[in-house]
C-alpha cells in the first residue's frame, strides 16, 4: 500500500517537474521564435528590374512592424512573397520555419499569414458579411460549428457584429475594411499583413481599422506587418522598416527612424507633420522643449504651454 502510494506521489511530482521544464523551454523558444525570415531574396516581374533586390529581413512573433517606402519601392512585392502569392527567384522566404518555395507548404503558410489588401471592394467574395467571413474557414475545411464560433470571434474582434447579416455594399469604407480583416481573422492566422489597407479610407475609417489592428496585436499576440503611406501610423510600431529600390534601407524604432530627417527625405518620405513643424520651429529658435514631438496633439499642447508662458 505505502509503496504504491509513494510510487504514485513520486510519479506525479516527476510529471509536474517535467511539465514545468517543458513549459519553460517552450516559452524561451517562443520569445526568440522568428515569424518571418527573408534571406537574400530577389524578385523581378519582368526579368529586367528587380522589384525586390537582395533583401534580408527577420520579423519576430508578436512584433508590430510598419513598412514605409515610396510608390514602387517593393513593399507589396515583399508582402506577396511572404504569403507565397509570388515565389522568390533567388534567396529564401521562411514563415515559421516553412519554406514558401515548397508547393506543399504553401497552404500551411497561407493559413498562418492573413493578408488584407488596399481596396476592400476587391477582396470580398460573398454579398452578405457573414457569408464572406465564412469563406476562409470553409476553404481550410473547418467544421460547421467551428465556423460559427470563428465568425463570432472575428466579428467581435473587429467590432462588426452589427453588420453580420448586411450586404457589404451598404457599408462605409472603414466598415468594409474591418469586415475584410474579420474575413482573414476567421482563418486564425498568426501573422496579419495589411498592404496599404487604410489608404482608401477617410480619417475616421482609418482610425477604426488601426484601432482594431492594435488591439489584435496587444491582446491576441498577432504579429502585424502594416504597409502604409501615413507616417502617423508608423508611430504605433515596435519597429519601422523603410524600403527603397527593393531594399530595406532603414530599420529601427519610430523614434530612431524619425530622428534621421535627411535620410527619410532621400527615400521619398517625410516626417509626421507634427515632427516636421517641431523641427522647423526649433531651427528658428522657438523653444518647444527638448523632447521630440510626433503627434499633432502633443504639438498643440506644447504650443499652448509656450503661449501660456508669454
Amino acid at each position: 500500500m505505502l509503496v504504491k502510494k509513494l510510487y504514485k506521489w513520486y510519479n506525479n511530482t516527476w510529471r509536474k517537474i517535467k511539465k514545468r521544464n517543458l513549459k519553460k523551454a517552450f516559452c524561451k523558444k517562443k520569445e526568440k521564435m522568428s515569424a518571418v525570415k527573408l534571406t537574400n531574396v530577389c524578385f523581378s516581374y519582368d526579368d529586367e528590374i528587380n522589384a525586390v533586390n537582395n533583401l534580408s529581413l527577420e520579423i519576430n512573433q508578436g512584433e508590430y512592424i510598419v513598412v514605409l517606402g515610396r510608390n514602387g519601392s517593393g513593399k507589396s512585392t515583399v508582402a506577396k512573397l511572404i504569403n507565397g502569392l509570388i515565389t522568390a527567384q533567388s534567396g529564401s522566404v521562411e514563415v515559421f520555419g516553412l519554406n514558401a518555395a515548397n508547393k506543399s507548404d504553401l497552404f500551411e503558410i497561407r493559413k498562418s499569414v492573413g493578408m488584407v489588401f488596399q481596396n476592400p471592394d476587391n477582396q470580398m467574395v460573398a454579398t452578405i458579411v457573414e457569408d464572406d467571413i465564412a469563406f476562409g474557414p470553409e476553404n481550410i475545411g473547418v467544421s460547421r460549428e467551428q465556423i460559427a464560433q470563428r465568425i463570432e470571434f472575428a466579428l467581435n474582434a473587429t467590432g462588426t457584429l452589427s453588420f453580420r447579416n448586411r450586404p457589404s455594399s451598404e457599408l462605409s469604407g472603414g466598415q468594409k475594411q474591418r469586415v475584410a480583416i474579420a474575413g482573414v481573422l476567421a482563418i486564425n492566422p498568426k501573422i496579419l499583413i495589411l498592404d496599404e489597407a487604410t489608404s482608401m479610407l477617410d480619417p475616421v475609417g482609418r482610425e477604426e481599422v488601426i484601432g482594431v489592428i492594435k488591439k489584435l496585436n496587444k491582446e491576441n499576440g498577432l504579429t502585424v506587418i502594416c504597409v502604409t503611406h501615413y507616417m502617423e501610423e508608423a508611430l504605433d510600431a515596435d519597429r519601422v522598416i523603410v524600403m527603397d529600390g527593393g531594399k530595406v534601407v532603414m530599420s529601427g524604432t519610430p523614434e530612431q527612424i524619425f530622428a534621421c530627417e535627411k535620410r527619410i527625405e532621400e527615400c521619398g518620405l517625410s516626417l509626421p507633420r507634427a515632427a516636421y513643424i517641431y523641427n522647423r520651429l526649433k531651427e528658428r529658435g522657438v523653444d518647444l522643449g527638448d523632447q521630440q514631438v510626433y503627434t499633432v496633439k502633443e504639438l498643440a499642447d506644447r504650443l499652448c504651454e509656450l503661449f501660456a508662458k508669454i
Binding site: L85, R110, F117, G183, V184, I187
Partner: peptide, 11 residues
C-alpha cells in the same frame, strides 16, 4: 486583385 485575395484566404 480578387484572385490574389482568394488565394490569400486559402482558396
Amino acid at each position: 486583385e480578387l484572385g490574389d485575395a482568394m488565394d490569400a484566404r486559402c482558396y
